[in-house]
Computed example of a mutant assay.
Amino acid sequence: MTATRRIVIDTDPGLGEPGSDIDDGLAIALALRSPEVTVEALTVVNGNVDVDTGVDVARRLGERLGHPDLPVVRGADRPLLRDMAPVRALFDDVIEDHPVRTAAEDRLGPTTDVTAAEYLVELAAAFPGEISVLAIGPMTNLALALRLDPGFAKNVAEIVMMAGSATGYAQNITVVGDFNAYVDPEALAIVLAGGAKLRMVGIDQTSRVRLTRDDAAVLSRGDAFGRWAGECALAWIEFLSRAFPLREEHRDACFLHDPLVVAAFLDPSLCTWADAHVVTDTTSELARGLVVADRGLALAPPPGPPNASVAVDTDVPGFGRLFLDRLTGTSAGD
């Protein structure tokens, strides 16, 4: 029997939390329902939601998916240098009238006494070359792990991250910055320079994969988790269509940014990869979170040797088949 690959998912999950994106939770579900991998833990970082909400969401997801003992480790509650208030303010206009959770839904605490950075360092050191990290939130926990122990870069098998854009501008939280990079570009810069084996799946690729209303209906015909996830997906699509009425891409679908990262780890052939020297801007307010992936295509020599493999194309139908098959047992077809 082939041994499964061991992963930690570093995440800022909001699935089921009013006004929060659902793709992290669906990525976690995809991983937990894939026999090729063993999910060692979920490490939680501030991002889509605050870190304590993320811990709560992650634990509830583990329970819903039949993994109540899955370790959930609390990580950074803020970016390395910046305050989150300006980031939260960007969403105020679209989520202020969205329902909030009731006080009766008590927060659940973390399952370990160590921080996410400490956990990552200790696990990778105990099993060098065996643990891959799928980073689908801001990179703060990973940067703190590298600060704590630079040897983490050599001990971790691979970091596959959802960040940047290798083939164009991000066009996400700003014109040039995707959410994960924009929230903590200083952390991303540390990870890019840290020496770990890196793969980057950018928003240029993740914006090509979507969950439609029809797909949500397919989820709803599945098991208890599928029914709940389908309801959450339909509610999220409806929310996006009202919040962004002029954006065609939000009318009948939502993006599956983070599930593509998991899928690309499960089956690297779903993406086309290219070596690149990747850097991010940490100095300019106008270009905060800008990620440049130089693949040596410019006339000038690249600024440095390749430090990451970046996704430059995606098999969109192939991803759709894998995603729905794993979550429901039903293929999406072409």
Rank of each mutant, 00 (worst) to 15 (best):
E118T: 00
F127C: 02
R227L: 03
G333R: 06
P306A: 05
D21A: 13
L240T: 10
P301A: 02
T330W: 00
D258Q: 15
S220E: 13
A103P: 01
E105G: 06
L15Y: 09
G333Y: 02
D325A: 12
V191A: 11
D267H: 14
L65R: 10
L42Y: 08
T53L: 13
R88K: 15
L80R: 15
A104P: 00
V73W: 03
I131H: 04
L32E: 05
P245E: 04
G222K: 06
H257E: 09
R208N: 08
D93G: 14
L26Q: 10
V39N: 09
V44S: 10
R288E: 01
L270F: 00
S241Q: 15
V133A: 11
D214C: 06
L327W: 05
L148F: 02
A3K: 14
L256K: 10
T112A: 08
C232Y: 06
A332F: 01
H67W: 05
S220Q: 15
D223C: 06
S20G: 06
G47N: 09
D184I: 04
I131K: 05
D204L: 07
A243V: 06
D325Y: 09
D83M: 03
A157C: 10
L286F: 08
P185K: 12
D23E: 11
L108Q: 11
A263R: 12
A124N: 01
I7L: 14
L80I: 14
V279G: 04
S241M: 12
R208K: 15
V39P: 13
A263Y: 04
G194E: 06
G62E: 03
E130N: 03
V310F: 10
A3Q: 13
S331T: 09
L108P: 01
